[in-house]
Design a protein around this nucleic acid. Structure first.
Lengths: 205, 205
DNA sequence: CTGCATCCATTTTGATACTG
DNA sequence: CAGTATCAAAATGGATGCAG
């Protein structure tokens, strides 16, 4: 754990807990789903193994994450505590703030479709609720995500096999632009199925 | 600027810009008000002068802050750009997340009443709006803040001399507990003036 | 294999002294 | 006041080792 700021300020105390390098990205991975050590390594390209171990211990000590023994196997699984899961809100706000940075496209950066699960939820939350439920697929980077919009809100996840009203295929930056509301559904986007469902889910009616 | 995470993910790109040590605390100071170099040093106890200079340059290059020449004097003043000011939302979310950490009290940490201007706004935002406008003073650590609640929302600032319906005097941790809704206005709090106004502003009717 | 621990070169930080 | 310069200590990234 790095040095404390020594300030009686909420922001400083939060950063004392999650401000160290990699910490919030670990939380991002666990917001997608609980994960094993190896899955975290894969989802955090560039992290050194000793650092990941250190950070997991720091976050556990702080009460942000917990180790669980997966049923059946005796493997360790890392998961967010209830308090840790509340980091979703600040993380979503940080993701919304990044929109101008993301519009520049990926450049040479690595990309994982799972990251979009967190980002799409962040960008679509707080949009007006739809009148009629729809589920659309997002085909990106060879993977398929699903976004289900109902009267009570939005759910984003990896595709679980359910029926889809439509499938949108586009680059990640285009998907993000659509979700952020800065792009209009037109070119660079391939839609199969019910285009009205896509417009409804993205609130582009 | 520290090494990029190299991930095409909104959180990672945000942290590439504001994730370095001290960066978000600098933004916090500028959310209170534009400030000169010396004021920033005072508001960031513990920062080294070379680091502050580096960070200010990084944030300026990234477009988060800008240097202005103060009118009348030819002094440099640092201020948030419009995009930088949008960091208020993620910072407020991080402050709300810190509530359990702040309830432990200041311990040996340093405290500045100005920090409460950001924190109180974060904690009171999103509360139901009051029916009748009131302005109350918060006397803490020898300084006086003011919180004005109107039908259109909440404003928090240092006291500007306006008439106050009441003045609350308490320790910072008590003030935060009241604003977070986890404490009830009773002991440890000294109220002069219209106690109903205090309850109205804190939504403790 | 997984889940670390150890070692080491490189960066970053913090503290202080100094300058225009 | 607004920074620079210097330097020791700490953190990081990368490679490798190793037990269950």
């Amino acid at each position: 754990m790095s040095r404390s700021y020594g300030q009686y300020c909420g922001l400083a105390r939060t950063l004392d807990v999650v401000g160290d390098r990699w910490n919030l990205l670990i939380v991002r991975e666990l917001l997608i789903a609980p994960a094993r050590y190896r899955e975290l390594l894969d989802g955090l390209p560039g992290v050194a193994t000793n650092l990941l171990t250190d950070r997991l211990r720091d976050l556990e000590t702080a009460g942000v994450i917990e180790r669980r023994l997966a049923e059946e196997s005796n493997a360790i699984v890392y998961a967010l505590t209830p308090w840790g899961a509340e980091l979703r809100e600040p993380i979503e706000a940080l993701i919304r703030w990044s929109t101008p940075l993301m519009m520049r496209g990926p450049g040479g950066d690595r990309f994982r479709a799972e990251w979009l699960v967190v980002a799409l939820r962040a960008l679509l939350a707080g949009r007006p609720h739809v009148r009629r439920s729809s589920t659309i697929g997002i085909a990106v980077d060879g993977q398929l995500l699903q976004v289900r919009a109902t009267r009570s809100g939005i759910e984003v996840s990896l595709h679980d096999g359910r029926a889809l009203d439509a499938v949108v295929r586009a680059d990640a930056s285009i998907i993000l632009g659509l979700a952020a509301g800065g792009l209009i559904l037109d070119e660079h986007v391939e839609v199969e199925g019910d285009e009205a469902a896509v417009r409804a889910v993205l609130n582009q009616d």
